[in-house]
Design a protein around this nucleic acid. Structure first.
Lengths: 205, 205
DNA sequence: ACCTGAACACCGTTCAAGT
DNA sequence: ACCTGAACACCGTTCAAGT
């Protein structure tokens, strides 16, 4: 038994540990409750300790974002497919509370590389687009996926809080087609864009 | 001269006055600097006074959002056009600092009615889509416009701060087509979606 | 009807100092 | 190398009380 008694010898935390803690705080409290103090509490550490591992909160959030979108398996993983890649990205975002918002801010600040984007570019090139058109197509899809999912996840939150009246939806067309789920709506919008990309390939030939 | 001396007799503020103040604070400080205290200072009032006019900050932000997107003139205003309406919405958002982010949050919380959405639905119907498809098309366009503009405006902010290295762009294709401006990229992505909508009209016939 | 003054329970970030 | 303790300059929101 050494001088520090039988207890653990003061465990040092690594960068991944901090990201782990942040992710579990996010899961429990959402992005509104994701404060540096709560992350520090989760690690049994003072807030200031976090600033040894990360220069600021945004950098920590970027690391969280990177973990969320890391290795989005296309399932098939080989042949690049626009629809499959976009859907896989959406599933990744949906898998984490407020995932779209977290990723959106890191992305906009240029702190995150989105692996899915390159796969979308490849898929667009394979479909026959020019280099420039393929980049535009990839960005359009990324904006759509993040925008749609962001909106969907914020509405989930609003529904829990009961803040917004649920009828004020972006698409009050629930009346016209009351059977449509968010998944169906997402797929329908995605099909629209993919179809546009396909005709751009034909046109640019 | 009455009891309160020659000065103004303690000016009462109206709801629109509060929105005015919020918009000028937003213009000067951006969304990160848009605090209830700064808005109160702008009005020469205590913070707590704001809560007589609005129940909370989000409600005030929703009023600001509504003002931003009110009466987006399509220019022609009569024949509903997908491209013109989407472009007019983008111009509205760009006209206000952090406009896309402010509108995005109000929209997601169900606190804002976007007049442009109905015009997009009308345009899609005129193009020959079914009711349900027209709603999906409108939402897809709204997500694209807000997502693209949000990203663009956050990058403006990052550029001023110097926080993000400017090379980490969503579209590093600046290499492939170095002449393309955000406006060109926006128009190109928009054309992709509109083309997809057009073919949906043909397919659904 | 509209506003003040003061408080409550939080924030992100910095920094000297410890081990 | 990694963390503590304490502070700084903020937040949104509430509420009794004034006029």
């Amino acid at each position: 038994m050494n001088a520090a008694s039988a207890d653990q010898p003061a465990p040092r935390r690594s960068k991944p540990d901090v990201v782990d803690a942040a992710m579990s705080v996010l899961a429990e409290n959402g992005i509104a409750g994701l404060s540096m103090r709560r992350i520090a509490d989760e690690l049994d550490v003072q807030v200031s300790a976090l600033y040894w591992h990360f220069p600021n909160k945004q950098a920590l959030l970027a690391a969280v974002s990177a973990r969320m979108v890391a290795g989005e398996s296309d399932a098939e993983s080989d042949a690049p497919d626009l629809t499959a890649t976009a859907t896989a990205l959406r599933d990744r975002l949906l898998a984490h509370r407020d995932g779209a918002e977290v990723v959106s801010s890191s992305l906009a600040l240029g702190l995150l590389d989105l692996p899915a984007r390159q796969r979308l570019v490849d898929a667009a090139l394979a479909a026959g687009l020019t280099d420039a058109a393929a980049e535009v197509a990839a960005d359009t899809l990324v904006h759509y996926v993040i925008g749609f999912t962001f909106h969907e996840q914020q509405r989930m939150h609003a529904a829990v809080i009961g803040a917004a009246d649920a009828s004020v939806d972006l698409s009050p067309a629930r009346l016209a087609s009351p059977g449509a789920s968010p998944d169906d709506d997402f797929a329908a919008g995605l099909a629209l864009i993919v179809s546009g990309i396909r005709s751009a390939a034909v046109a640019g030939r």
